[in-house]
Amino acid sequence: MHIEVIPVEGLPLIHQGDDLAEMICRLVAFEDGDILCLASSVYSKAHGHTRLLDEIVPSVDAERIALKTHEDPRFVQAVLDDTTDVILEEPFILSETVTGHVGVRAGLDHSNVEDGMVVRLPPDPMNAAAGLRDALGAVSGKDVRVIITDTCGRSFRRGQAGVAIGWSGMTAIRDFRGDHDLFGHTLEITEEAVVDEVAGFSNFVMGESNNGIPAVVFRNCPQWAGHDDLHFRRDEDIIREALSKN
């Protein structure tokens, strides 16, 4: 199996109202089955999921937490506004968003964006991926799978990695349960988070500073069967349970 990885080069800085599907299709000749990974920040900028710090009034909680994290209280308030559950307040805010995604500062970002602006995660990333997939299909005439990515820290390991926050045209998990290994043993627990693996490699291609590559195409990736139950339920998440006890 020969998988081709194609960085989408030449996209300009994105502004609200830009037609991402049209802009990307001018730069890529898609084929059926391609997977497009798109940075969530780019999607959010095009769809206006941004906030101006000058328009945010911090609450008492935001002021209190900002003293611990040494951050702008207005930014902390933006994080709290997109948070359904604060898991940690310090040394950084670790929180859950309405979509079930758990990440540092609710995924809000103020890098690679104009001064004084904060970029939010898409409020409904699954519908965002589905909508972008439909738009790409309408422009290109091809069946393109879509993953919207973000970067996230990892428990027990240093450094960030790309993860999928929304996807369309595939399942998040490749489920091996019931299959057999090389020795004929039945696999009982093996579930592979394929969307995160693809998102992680796309982030390696995109880079984290000034590469200017917010989209990556993967070609010749096989189809797989599985499910979309990517996030642990609270009663399953042993790390979250341990943090709550402390």
Rank of each mutant, 00 (worst) to 15 (best):
D150N: 06
A164P: 03
L94K: 07
D134C: 10
V118F: 08
A135N: 10
R74F: 08
D72S: 01
I238H: 15
P125F: 01
G131H: 04
E90Q: 05
I173M: 04
N220W: 09
T97C: 13
A39D: 14
L27H: 08
A128K: 00
V146I: 02
E114C: 14
T83Y: 02
E4D: 12
S140A: 00
C221S: 13
P222E: 11
T171Q: 10
F176H: 15
D196E: 01
V57Y: 05
D228R: 08
K142L: 07
D82L: 13
D32H: 07
S41R: 12
E208L: 14
Y43D: 03
A138Y: 10
L108P: 10
L27R: 14
L13A: 11
S202I: 05
N211C: 13
V198W: 05
V60R: 14
A106R: 11
T171W: 04
I35T: 06
R219T: 02
L38D: 04
T84D: 07
D124E: 09
H185T: 13
L53Y: 04
G103W: 07
K45E: 06
R154C: 09
P214A: 05
V205N: 07
A138H: 04
G153S: 07
D72T: 02
D54I: 10
L230H: 14
V118R: 03
L80G: 06
F176D: 07
A106P: 02
N203E: 04
D19E: 15
L53N: 03
V5R: 13
L80S: 08
S95N: 04
H49P: 11
D179H: 05
S44R: 05
D143Q: 09
V104P: 10
H47Q: 06
G103E: 11
G207A: 05
E4M: 13
A164Y: 02
P125S: 08
L121R: 09
Q223K: 15
S155Y: 13
R120C: 15
E63V: 06
H227Y: 09
A164W: 10
F176P: 10
E188P: 05
D18S: 12
P91T: 01
G162M: 07
N127R: 15
H227R: 15
E22T: 14
V216P: 04
L121S: 03
F75A: 14
T190L: 08
V118S: 08
G137Q: 00
L88E: 12
E4I: 13
E197T: 00
G107H: 06
M206Q: 06
D81S: 06
A172F: 04
A199L: 00
A62Q: 07
S40T: 02
V28Y: 00
I14G: 08
F176C: 11
A106S: 06
H47K: 11
L132W: 02
R145K: 06
N210Y: 14
L94N: 04
V8T: 09
F201G: 07
I165S: 04
S40C: 13
